[in-house]
Design a binder for these strands. Structure first.
Length: 361
DNA sequence: GCGTACATGTTCCAGTAGCG
DNA sequence: CGCTACTGGAACATGTACGC
């Protein structure tokens, strides 16, 4: 509790400072925890001078802001506003350590001012319009990306793959082998971003993906900020990618090793694009079985001229197969898409093609 | 209709793995 | 080596179904 108050204070000081940096700008705190109307309360009132005009800011504070948080707060602020004397300009105002892009859009539409620790500042006052857009602060970027990590990423993948279905926590927990606690947390985060529709409540609660496009976009930009995973390069005697992938299939079956082909080779099977490709990227369940599969393939580790690339797998469940085409087990289209985005050369084009063929539907 | 038992979703907490 | 953030077990909350 004390820690939160300190954070709140830090945010307010940041806002005061940011307004002070504006030409003819000045601001001071008029009150904290101010009662408004019969039972309303705002976190702070701030008196601001901007370009010679006085504006009072009705401030609500949050740690992080996703669309749903913002909507709730905007509604509260509007309520408060109705109980305020109308003798001067009063602006509803929202501050948080980090405000997600979607949340910013809502605030701008609603003409509610906002500020975050990244330095973004939006003040839609009558006589002085201020808008400074800064990216989400690095430190907090990971809190926005946590959905695309580890176990939660598996859950999000599953939700995407079954985007036409209404899903329960229990069902997802069973099919992904992730604990119900983590599945629930994942879905709650998706709700905050307003990417899922919700039906029912309590034990009969169901969700369904609504904004597949927003989800892909967010995951893509997350991937863009990540360093590409390590790729172990091998050469396997043989010819084209399809045949190589089929050899891989036999070797992994014989070695009883789980594998999933991804990137260019997989995209080519999902939605043919290039006339021919020569390299196969895949994930193979790590351990002894992986070694055995590589031995059966006569794969030789090389630094140049590779045709088999092994993407490092860390978290359990990284190797998941969505379907088999021509006896080749493929990672899910979304996974393939994300892996293509990590690649270079024409992989971006392939990614775009795959997306329009398989993901945007 | 009402209350109770059950199933499921959510939150809390502590152990732990990964990171710098 | 210290720290942070993730994870999942367990306690807690919330609907639902069934019996009366």
């Amino acid at each position: 509790m004390l820690k939160y108050e300190a954070e709140e204070r830090e945010l307010l000081d940041g806002l005061i400072g940011a307004i002070g940096m504006l030409p003819d700008g000045h601001a001071e705190i008029d009150g904290l925890e101010v009662a408004i109307g019969p039972r309303g309360r705002v976190d702070a009132l701030v008196d601001a001078q901007i370009g010679g005009q006085a504006v009072q800011l009705l401030v609500e504070t949050k740690r992080e802001a996703f669309p749903r948080d913002v909507r709730e707060t905007v509604w509260q602020l509007r309520n408060h506003l109705a109980h305020m004397p109308a003798n001067r300009e009063i602006l509803p105002f929202f501050i948080a350590r980090a405000i997600s892009p979607g949340a910013r859009d809502i605030l701008r539409e609603e003409r509610v001012g906002f500020y975050d620790l990244g330095g973004s500042l939006y003040i839609p006052a009558r006589h002085a319009f201020v808008y400074v857009d800064r990216p989400v602060p690095k430190k907090n970027a990971k809190s926005f990306g946590s959905l695309f990590h580890g176990q939660k990423a598996r859950v999000v993948q599953a939700i995407f793959d079954r985007r036409s279905e209404w899903l329960s926590v229990k069902e997802l927990a069973e099919s992904t082998e992730v604990s119900p606690a983590t599945v629930s947390a994942t879905l709650t985060e998706l709700e905050r971003r307003e990417w899922v529709d919700v039906e029912g409540a309590g034990p009969s609660k169901l969700r369904r993906l609504r904004s597949a496009k927003a989800l892909i976009d967010a995951w893509s930009s997350y991937v863009a900020d990540q360093k590409p995973p390590k790729l172990a390069r091998y050469y396997v005697p043989g010819s084209n990618a399809l045949e190589l992938a089929q050899q891989l299939d036999r070797a992994c079956r014989d070695a009883d090793a789980g594998y999933a082909v991804t990137a260019e080779a997989a995209a080519q099977l999902y939605a043919p694009y290039l006339s021919s490709i020569s390299q196969v990227k895949c994930r193979i369940e790590p351990g002894r079985r992986q070694e055995e599969a590589l031995e059966r393939l006569n794969a030789r580790a090389v630094s140049e001229g590779w045709n088999l690339g092994l993407i490092e797998t860390r978290a359990r469940g990284d190797v998941t197969v969505a379907e088999s085409i021509q006896d080749v087990r493929l990672a899910s289209p979304l996974q393939v898409y994300l892996d293509l985005l990590q690649g270079s050369g024409r992989s971006r084009e392939m990614a775009a093609h795959l997306r329009s063929e398989r993901l945007d539907a």
